[in-house]
Every structure is written in structure tokens, then in C-alpha cells.
Design a protein around this nucleic acid. Structure first.
Length: 911
RNA sequence: GCGGAGGUAGCCGAGCCAGGUCAAAGGCGACAGACUCAAGAUCUGUUUCCGCAGGGAUACGCCGGUUCGAAUCCGGCCCUCCGCACCA
């Protein structure tokens, strides 16, 4: 008996028509601004996407029912390259993508013709962005989210760009914008920087950028450039290696005639455009020449070797057989007479070229994987533990670490060194083009390393709340770790840098303070209609209250904007998934710390865990992508919400699998049939069961509120949904009629439940004859009263008694037909009290014989705040019902074979 | 490699920050019983082992330590997951 989609849609429509979730400033009420990252509009959403938004809606609804004026706004992200790239792919007829889109569009479009039409529109980037914005509005509405859609915008629209322009001008004023060189992974073929997603296996096998030192070995009338990760080993050089195939060219590199491989040159050119070919040179002449090792002046010669890749580094390397296992074997296999020279001292027992050769059983260059492993081991060992020995000239005695830095520095200063960047592994794009490292010149950065900025942000982090708390420290760490971040690119959608129009602000940099825009978007739109682009001084006025003149025609709008901003701004909570922590969230905080006064800075961050599907990360390669809207239609919005809220803790990974969903659905159906069958009846407060049920409900609500306030949503839902249902069952089994039990709690229960299953709550609230929205109802904070405590405690007491009797029955394995229960009277209560206080003497002489018995059961003795005899008498029916035997109770001190009743520990005699 | 999180009963998943009330919530699954012609749903009970009277033993990744007392605090080890920069 589930609620059907029509009923859910009915409420969604009524909420919208009534503007139920469209709040305006209300000075008398506490405001609550909750935001989530706006979705990126390049595709429809899957079940994983829905998690953060669902949890945010639950939180938003909770704050609403505790009486706050809640604003939950939403916008759409279009900045960056993906939408552009996807649109291009559609336009060029990429069948894979088109098939995917076709599949997703089926969820929304009825006819094939219509789908074709939509796909046609995707050839324009705005076609994709606009379409999916609408789709997402539809999805979120369908999920019952309490979003104020009046305030939506997208990042491609002029007002947004005006706002970002203002932001970047401010950042520049604050000295946070810098320009400089920056190495990136790059495809020369595509003439583009490539990200992890563009690289074949980039997600599983990371590619990073490594900096190599180019060492110039001076020759007859040119230098041979040899690249290395270990410049400190030059004193161990026995010879040089060049490739046996591949051309070599003479280039002008920083004013010196330098020889590199032609293939290497192509890449070096991308890193240092000033390098020019000035001539060719044949290998034979290189092999005949003599070269001098920097600093030591030793003369060495070059040889050909298969270990050299002409595209890697400079296409030449220097050979250090004492510390490179590759060189060691290369020399052996080339039949050269050089002996390894050890120039680094290592602690006793460390691995060395010699020891690894035998321990790893390496015989030659053909065993490349073993060689690589050994190289790694030596590299690390020598770096961390090695010390330069006396053969190292002025570097003797330094640690390897120090020596590397010093030698690099000295090489650069004596113009015998350069840097060249390489990928950490050979990589190609998904299209098959080689990935290399290129140097972006004049890249714009936001400088997140500024001292004052870090300090201000750390203070903010200390001031605000984190849910869960464990993320506070990682946030401090992330802020420390951030340095300059490139903030603009030459392609993609977005806002142009106001001070350099060639550049477009990158999508993580343009979305750090936009939450403020929600508070002022309506008046800004009106201003934009009247005067066109919104100039920075208007934002200065609205945000900082700076004086403004010359805008009389939009005076009313300005006042409205200022009022609304002043009332709302300051994000009360930002909810987002954990992968955003070290990037988006950190930028969000830093930019706020930089641009806003403390009272406008964020107050809390809630971090939700990832969602996986069938145990695996959600992705089309895994084939586990489940459509969000499809799930809504197949099950229901309430079920989806309930699942997301109750299957895993807010911050832990949730696993989407339909088996669990089916189980949850049964529970939900049960809940619905209870509501269906409910007929309003006055609440019963008289019976034992009802007293207990009401008391328990109060504690469930209290727990619910407490948990929700700390974003422990799962706990809250367990308390208000599962536990209340269990309580109901329990109270019914104690003989109370269901409807009278529910009568006493219905309003409060539905109000609390409206956070999670708003449609059901709303529907049944109205079926009970109410015409207000339960979603806007206010939940009472119940106080715990003495009688409630007693009710809860006495129920526990009864249950324990039943369990005890059951245990006796099962332990003995016999069957019994009656139980005599005796509770302690005043005399034994007094004795127990005395003995608990170790006051043995006050026990009357004729009672000394019971002391031994007392001591045995001492730890289970409890002085309850109720009369045990009354409670058991009251619950006699319940006990008999549960056990199926006759039960009598009396207050009696008579012992049974030496055992006695004590407070909290009635004596049971079965027969 | 660097940084972070975590390992709890057949499974999922709380508890751990503030040590005892923890054989350890809740859900699922399994088993038994009730209801039913039957199945499903629902309800009741059981679900570490032992116990002919409400008890005991062993348990919260592994090994140690602190403590009268540890799933909870400390140290070491093993294992799993997540993030790591121009990418939304």
C-alpha cells in the first residue's frame, strides 16, 4: 500500500502553488541558510548524486519544523570544459555519447522524434546546459525537495558573470591574484592540457609531473645535455649514453649550443619556447667527442645504449654504474671497461647496486620490471639514508638530500643546468595521443599561500562547526597544503578575467562565494533589466554597504537587495560530499575569509559520504549507474529519501542496492498501512501500555532532535521511524488499542517524519482533516517528566522479569503452568539499603541469615522509583500473555530454599 | 609516496570523543512457533558456547600496555577504503 506518484506529485504541486518553501526576510524569526553545491548540467542525475541533496533537504526540513525561517536555494553550474566538450562530441556524431544521451533522455521524453530534437539542440553547449537544468529542476521537485526555485540562476548568465567579475577584482585588490609559469600534462597533438579523465587509465594509474635536472657536459663546441632525477651522482659518472637510433640536434638553450635528441626537443620546446634548433649533428661525431663532467672536470665519452629513450628527458643520460643498476648492466652488456665507483656512503646492511643484483637475481637489461623495482629501492634508500663520500668535491659529507639541492642550485648558477619535466609514466590520451609536460606561460593564479589568508581561514575553521567533527583537522591540513592555484584557462565556458580578457575563470574558482548571490538575485535581475551589466560598485554597496551614487533609478531594488543580503547572508550550513573537502570546500572557506567579515562567514559544514552502487564506485564503466528519476518513479520519492537517510550514517559510504531497498520498502508499506487504517481517536494516557508508549515517544522525539542537530540523520530516522514502529508493536502486544495509542502522538509524529517522508506525512495529515502544511508545522520539544521516567523504567522492569522467567524455563527445559512472583517488602528493602551502605550491624539478628543470599545477587539490586508490586500487578496480564502461564504476585519476605526477593530483583518460583 | 578515514556478531550498521548500566541499538538474513487449505504478509521467540532456576565462559582486526574494570584510553603490527591540484 504505497503512496503512488500521483499523490506525491499532488503535494509537490500544492507546495509550489502555495510558495511553501519560498521564504522572505522576517526579522522576527531566526533564519537558516542551507546550501549545497549546485549541480553541473551536462547529464541527468543518478542515485548517487541524489544523496547529498536529499540529506540537505532533510536538514532543511528539520530546521523548518523547529521554527526557523529556512532558505534552501539552488542554481546550476555550467562553467568549464565538459559541457563544451560534450556538445562538440554530439556535433561530430560521437556515437557512444549519443547512445548514452539517448538512453538518459528516454526517462524524460516520450517520443523518438522529441529525443532527436533534443539531441539536435545539444550541438550547442547551451542546449545541453539548458535542457539538463530543466531536468534537474524536475528531478529535485519530484524528490520533494523544499527548494526556493525563485532564486535559481546559472553560471553562464550575465548577472552571475557580473558577480564573479566583481569577486575577481576584489581578489586582485587583496593581492591574491598572481601570474607565472606552470607545468601541466599536455597533448601536443590536441594542443590542449589534459586532465586525469582525458588520460587512458588515468583514474587507476595516476600520472604525475616529475622534474628532471638537465646537466650540461661540455664538449668540443657544444654541450651534451643529459637529464637525470639524481643530479647529485655526477661525481660517479663513468660515461654518457645516447640513443642508438634517433636524430640529435644542436639547439640554442639559454644562449648555449646544446645537443639534445630531436624527439626530446619537441617536448622541451613546449616547456621552454625560446629553445631553437640551430643545427644538426650526427651521432658518430658525438661518439668521437670528449665531454667534461661539471665541477669535477673529469673527461668522459658517450656511447650508444638501448637504455636511452630519445624522447625522454633530453635523449641523453650520464652513466653512474655505482648507483644505477641500469647503468651497471648497460656497461656490462656493451662490453665497456668501466668499473662502478661508489660515491655515496650508506649505513651498514643497506641495499646497493651489488647487493640487489644478487638478492633480486637480476642478470641483464631484459629484466626490466626487476630493474625498475631495484632502481626504486636504491633511489629511496640513498635519498633518505645516504651521505656523499669524499669523492664528491665540495659536496663531500653532505646528505644526499642536501647535495641534490646544492648541486642543482650550483648547476643553474653556473649555467650548466636546466629543468625539464617528464610524466611519471608513459601515458597517452584516450584518443591515443602522447601525453607530455608543457609549461603554461603567464598562467593566472589565486595565491592561497598568503600568510594572512591562511591565518584568517584557520581562525574561521576553528570558529565554525563541522559535522562530523573529524573533518575539522583535515580542513586545517588542506588549507596549509594549498599553494597557488591556477584559476583561469583559455577554453571552456565561464566568466572572463576582468583584467585579462583572453582567460576564462576556471570552474572551481568561480564558485566559491556564489551563495551570497541567492540572497539578492531577484532585485539584481530587476536592476539588470533596467541598466544592463551590474557594475562592481553595486556589489560593493550591497555586500559592504559602501556608499553609492548615480543609481537613483534602481534605488528601490538596491534597498531590497541590501535588506535581503543583510538578513540572509552568512551560510548557516553547507552540505557536500567528502571529495570536495580539499578543493571546493577549502576554496569556499578561504574566499569567504578573504572577502567577508566574520559575521558573514560560514557557520557549519556537513560532509556526506560517497555513494556507491552494488559495492562499486558509480560509473558507466562499472555498469552500475541507476537513474535518480527512474528510481523515484519505480519506487517513490519517500522510499528513496528514507533509504538515503537510514541506510548509512551521514558521513559514511552508502551502498545502493535494490535488495536492501526492497526490505526497506516492506517496512514503509507497513507504516503506510498503519496510517491508512488509523481513525482519529482521543489519545489514551491511562493504561500501563499507553503511559509507557507516550513516555517512550517523548524520548524518541528528544533523541530525534538531538541527533538531527548534529546531522546524525540515520540515528534520528532510526529513532523516529523504526523505533516508534517497534514501540507501537510492543505497546499493542501489551494490550493497548493501536488507534488510541497513535491518537496521542500523531501530530508530533507526522511533523517529525515530514523531514524524511514529507509526502506521506503531508497526505495523512490532511486526511485527518487538517488544512495546514505539516511541513511547516512546529515540533514541540518534549520535556522529560518524572512520570515518564517511571513509565519507561517500569516497562523495562517488567520486560526483564519476563526475560528472566523465560530464561529459567528454557534453562530447565521443563514445562511450568504457574509462576509465583514475590517482591521485596519494606523489611528486605531496609536490609538491602543497609547492606548496600555496608551497614551490616543494623540488620536485625533474626535476619542475619539472609545476608549471604543478598551478597550473591548484590549487583542486580536496584532501588526503583516505583512500587514493584503495583507495577507487576498492573502488568500481570502482559506477563501472562507473553509467557502463556498463570502468574501471581505478592509482597512477601518468605524465602524459597534460602533465596529471597530483593529490591529490583523479585523472586520467581515456577511450578 | 604524502595526507585522511576505518576494521564491531551470518550480512549491513550504531556504540568508541566523555572506560563500568555492552553479549553490544536498529535493519536484513536464518531458524522455530502462531495465523493460513497453502504461499506471502503479519505477529511471537531464538540466532557465540555452556547451564535441569534467572548463572557462567569466551568475544568487538592482531599483539602488548594503562586501569579495580577496555569494543571504548595508550603503543606497535596487519588489512581495507578515500583524497592528492587546474578536474567538475
Amino acid at each position: 500500500m504505497r503512496l503512488n506518484s500521483e499523490i506525491e506529485k499532488k503535494w509537490q504541486k500544492l507546495w509550489r502553488e502555495a510558495g511553501a518553501f519560498e521564504p522572505d526576510p522576517d526579522e522576527g524569526r531566526k533564519k537558516f541558510l542551507i546550501t549545497v553545491p549546485y549541480p553541473y548540467t551536462n547529464d541527468s542525475l543518478h542515485v548517487g548524486h541524489g544523496r547529498t541533496y536529499t540529506l540537505a533537504d532533510v536538514v532543511a526540513r528539520f530546521h523548518r519544523i523547529i521554527g526557523e525561517n529556512v532558505l534552501f536555494p539552488m542554481a546550476f553550474h555550467q562553467s568549464g570544459t565538459p559541457i563544451l566538450a560534450f556538445s562538440k562530441r554530439v556535433a561530430s556524431g560521437d556515437s557512444k555519447l549519443i547512445t548514452l544521451y539517448r538512453e538518459h533522455l528516454q526517462e524524460y521524453e516520450a517520443s523518438r522524434e522529441r529525443i532527436d530534437e533534443v539531441l539536435e539542440s545539444f550541438k550547442e553547449p547551451s542546449g545541453i546546459a539548458d535542457y539538463f537544468s530543466e531536468v534537474i529542476i524536475n528531478d529535485f521537485t519530484r524528490l520533494g525537495f523544499s527548494i526556493d526555485w525563485r532564486r535559481r540562476f546559472n553560471t553562464a548568465e550575465p548577472i552571475y558573470q557580473n558577480f564573479v567579475t566583481w569577486q575577481f577584482l576584489k581578489l586582485k585588490e587583496l593581492g591574491m591574484i598572481k601570474q607565472g609559469d606552470y607545468p601541466v600534462l599536455y597533448s601536443a597533438e590536441d594542443e590542449n592540457a589534459v586532465g586525469e579523465d582525458d588520460i587512458k587509465d588515468g583514474d587507476t594509474d595516476k600520472v604525475s609531473i616529475e622534474e628532471l635536472t638537465v646537466v650540461l657536459f661540455s664538449g668540443p663546441d657544444y654541450d651534451l645535455a643529459a637529464a637525470s632525477l639524481r643530479p647529485e651522482t655526477i661525481y660517479g659518472t663513468t660515461n654518457l649514453w645516447i640513443s642508438g637510433n634517433g636524430d640529435y640536434v644542436v639547439v640554442n638553450w639559454g644562449g648555449r649550443r646544446t645537443v639534445v635528441a630531436r624527439e626530446a626537443y619537441e617536448k622541451i620546446k613546449l616547456q621552454e619556447p625560446s629553445v631553437e634548433i640551430i643545427g644538426e649533428i650526427n651521432r658518430a661525431s658525438i661518439l668521437e667527442a670528449r665531454f667534461r663532467v661539471p665541477f669535477s672536470g673529469v673527461e668522459v665519452q658517450a656511447y650508444e645504449s638501448p637504455v636511452v629513450d630519445p624522447s625522454f628527458g633530453t635523449g641523453a643520460v650520464f652513466s653512474v654504474p655505482g648507483h644505477s643498476i641500469m647503468d651497471y648492466f648497460a656497461i656490462r652488456e656493451a662490453g665497456l671497461p668501466f668499473k662502478p665507483v661508489s660515491i655515496i656512503d650508506m649505513p651498514e646492511g643497506s641495499d646497493s647496486v651489488g647487493s640487489l643484483t644478487s638478492s633480486m637475481d637480476i642478470h641483464g637489461l631484459s629484466e626490466s620490471s626487476k630493474l625498475q623495482e631495484a632502481t626504486q629501492i636504491i633511489y629511496k634508500a640513498e635519498y633518505y639514508a645516504g651521505r656523499m663520500n669524499s669523492l664528491n668535491g665540495s659536496y663531500s659529507g653532505m646528505t644526499v638530500r642536501e647535495a641534490r639541492d646544492r648541486i642543482r642550485k650550483d648547476l643553474f648558477e653556473s649555467r650548466l643546468g636546466h629543468s625539464v619535466y617528464e610524466t611519471s609514466r608513459k601515458a597517452e590520451t584516450r584518443g591515443g595521443a602522447r601525453v607530455v609536460v608543457a609549461m603554461l606561460k603567464d598562467q593566472w593564479f589565486i595565491d592561497y599561500s598568503l600568510e594572512w589568508l591562511k591565518k584568517a581561514t584557520h581562525e574561521l575553521v576553528d570558529r565554525m562547526s563541522f559535522f562530523p567533527e573529524i573533518y575539522r583537522k583535515p580542513m586545517h591540513d588542506a588549507i596549509d597544503w594549498l599553494r597557488e592555484r591556477p584559476c583561469a584557462r583559455k577554453r571552456g565556458l565561464g566568466t572572463r578575467l576582468p583584467f585579462d580578457q583572453e582567460w576564462i575563470i576556471e570552474s572551481l574558482s568561480d564558485s566559491t562565494i556564489y551563495m551570497a548571490l541567492y540572497t539578492m538575485i531577484a532585485p539584481l535581475r530587476k536592476i539588470h533589466e533596467k541598466i544592463g551589466d551590474v557594475p562592481p560598485e553595486i556589489f560593493d554597496h550591497v555586500v559592504y554597504g559602501m556608499p553609492l551614487s548615480g543609481y537613483d533609478e534602481v534605488d528601490a531594488e538596491l534597498r531590497e537587495a541590501r535588506l535581503s543580503y543583510s538578513y540572509w547572508y552568512g551560510v548557516d550550513t553547507r552540505i557536500t560530499a567528502v571529495p570536495h573537502l580539499s578543493n571546493h570546500l577549502a576554496f569556499f572557506l578561504i574566499n569567504h575569509a578573504a572577502m567577508f567579515p566574520p559575521d558573514r562567514q560560514p557557520r557549519a559544514i556537513g560532509i556526506s559520504g560517497m555513494a556507491v552502487s552494488k559495492g562499486a564506485k558509480i560509473g558507466k564503466s562499472k555498469g552500475n549507474v541507476v537513474s535518480l528519476i527512474g528510481t523515484c518513479n519505480k519506487y517513490s520519492a519517500d522510499i528513496y529519501r528514507l533509504f538515503m537517510a537510514s541506510s548509512a550514517d551521514f558521513s559514511s559510504v552508502i551502498d545502493w542496492n535494490e535488495d536492501d531497498l526492497a526490505a526497506l520498502m516492506r517496512k514503509y508499506d507497513q507504516f503506510i498501512s498503519i496510517l491508512d487504517a488509523y481513525r482519529s481517536e482521543p489519545g489514551d494516557r491511562g493504561s500501563f501500555a499507553a503511559r509507557w508508549f507516550n513516555a517512550s515517544f517523548k524520548s524518541r522525539i528528544a533523541r530525534f532532535i538531538e541527533a538531527m542537530e548534529e546531522y546524525r540523520i540515520r540515528d534520528a530516522v532510526v529513532s523516529i521511524f523504526f523505533e516508534v514502529l517497534n514501540d507501537l508493536k510492543n505497546a499493542e502486544s501489551m494490550g493497548a488499542p493501536r488507534n488510541s495509542l497513535l491518537g496521542g502522538i500523531m501530530e508530533q509524529w507526522l511533523t517529525a517524519l515530514s523531514c524524511v517522508v514529507p509526502h506521506a506525512a503531508e497526505e495523512y495529515w490532511h486526511r485527518l482533516g487538517n488544512d495546514t502544511f505539516i511541513s511547516l508545522n512546529v515540533l514541540d520539544r518534549p520535556g522529560q517528566e518524572e512520570e515518564d521516567r517511571v513509565a519507561l523504567e517500569s516497562e523495562k522492569y517488567l520486560r526483564k522479569l519476563i526475560e528472566d522467567i523465560r530464561e529459567i524455563m528454557s534453562a530447565t527445559g521443563k514445562s511450568f503452568s504457574r509462576a509465583e512472583v514475590r517482591v521485596a517488602g519494606t523489611e528486605h528493602t531496609e536490609i538491602a539499603r543497609a547492606l548496600m551502605n555496608n551497614n551490616r550491624d543494623s540488620v536485625p539478628a533474626e535476619k542475619k541469615r539472609v545476608v549471604g543470599d543478598f551478597m550473591k545477587v548484590r549487583k542486580s539490586v536496584v532501588f526503583h522509583g516505583f512500587n514493584e508490586l503495583e507495577v507487576i500487578t498492573d502488568g500481570l496480564g502482559i506477563i501472562q500473555n507473553a509467557l502463556g502461564i498463570e502468574v501471581t504476585v505478592s509482597e512477601s519476605e518468605v524465602d524459597v530454599s534460602g533465596r529471597n526477593p530483593w529490591p529490583g530483583r523479585p523472586l520467581v518460583n515456577l511450578s
